[in-house]
Amino acid sequence: MNRNMILGGTLSAVLIAAALLSLVWTPYDYASLDIPNKLQRPDAAHLLGTDHFGRDILSMIMAGARTSLGVALMAVGIGLVFGIPLGLWAAARKGSWVDEFIMRGNDVVFAFPLLAMAILITAVFGPSALNAIIAFGIFNIPVFARTVRGGALSLWEREFILAARVSGKSSLRISFEHILPNLVNLLIVQGTIQFALGIQVEAALSFVGLGVQPPIPSLGRMLADAQTLVTLAPHLAVFPGLAIILIVLGLNLFGDGLRDWLDPRIRVART
């Protein structure tokens, strides 16, 4: 354990717990309107104030963070589910047409900026949380495929893999018995980083209207709503932003600490 890991771990644990708590309890109903109490500054009744409909900001942030975490988690899941087998397969058939095909495919997907992908999907299917998940999920596939392939290639050079081959094991079996377990550290660290990125991606896409749609709570949409009122009520913008920063900061610190703790030598692509 090191300082980054403890600090980041605690920070993200507290915030994730608050987000999950919103499933069963929030200080106020995040969706209920209370026009007479609109645009309240933070006080004892509303710790972080209220918005232009009188909704409690703290409750909205708790529920919005839950959405962000969900979107990020599913998108990372998509990346892992497709990226790991592709990366393992490419590494096992290094230099063959399979490898070439997978890597060229990765390059093409990588050439689509995340926003371009989201724009394309939204333009065709309309904006929704699901489309944000799909866009970031597709973006994650080459990230994980490259991470896995890179790690796997150096493992394939190791003599214990040769020993397994001499023992007659097929490359499929070696990939799952010897390669993948030795990549778990790498994947946890890369996963944490992509997860943190996912929180930001959700916020950005929802901010410009390409992500989560009403009535689902979202930190990005809170900021979009706050934009017109920012001179009048800065707290509408400040608190959701701080929430995003703290979650991302916590996860990134945790990821960095975890990397140093698990293995100082592993290298993770940070984009």
Binding site: A203, A204, G241, N252
Partner: peptide, 8 residues
């Protein structure tokens, strides 16, 4: 710097 959303 990495954690701050640039639009915010």
């Amino acid at each position: 710097g990495v954690a701050v959303p640039n639009f915010w």
